[in-house]
Amino acid sequence: MKIKNNALNVLFRPIWRDNPINIQMLGICSALAVTVQLKTALVMALSMTFVISCSGFMISLIRKQIPKNIRIIVELSIISTFVILTDEFLRAYFYDISKQLSVFVGLIITNCIVMGRAESFALSNPPHLAFIDGVGNGIGYGSVLLSVAFIRELLGAGKCFGMQVVPDYLYSMGYEDAGFMLLAPAAFIIIGLLVWLQKVLTKGSP
């Protein structure tokens, strides 16, 4: 089956069927690290969407001028420019969150999703499609991030966006937060289970 590159398809494919994290196995590093809280996950997802779509647009715009041999370094410098913009913006307006995200905003540069989309899509498609593709991949990435963060924050701290959702009487009845959810191993296991779930759900569909 040939995939049609119309705008709608480009936007929606990466959200479910070609999800960058669950199916293409790209960009896992940051997905695990920033998902302790919904707030950081949301900020990360937005920064990621911004970087993928803008860098895709720029790369696609100059795709005919980039010499083949040095395309990687050209792509990297375009991506880093947008990452620096994002980082400076976060530092100026959301200082606390940028402290919590620490090095992971910078690591968007080496995030395989951005490079992967630049290489496989932006270099061979017109700018507006590359931009839409970036938005779609950003949403796909963000939705996985938010679901992992939701599970971890709810079970690990009893909160949702920093607000307590597990009622007090449950605690007085002896319910305790699973502190394990906030630790590194839980992130791996939750992503593993989510991917499994998606594979079972999409069983049989092409």
Partner: peptide, 14 residues
């Protein structure tokens, strides 16, 4: 079904 490969790798890594 669906567990082999990548999901299993993630859980083992955990």
């Amino acid at each position: 079904y669906g567990m082999e490969g990548y999901p299993l790798t993630m859980i083992v890594t955990g």
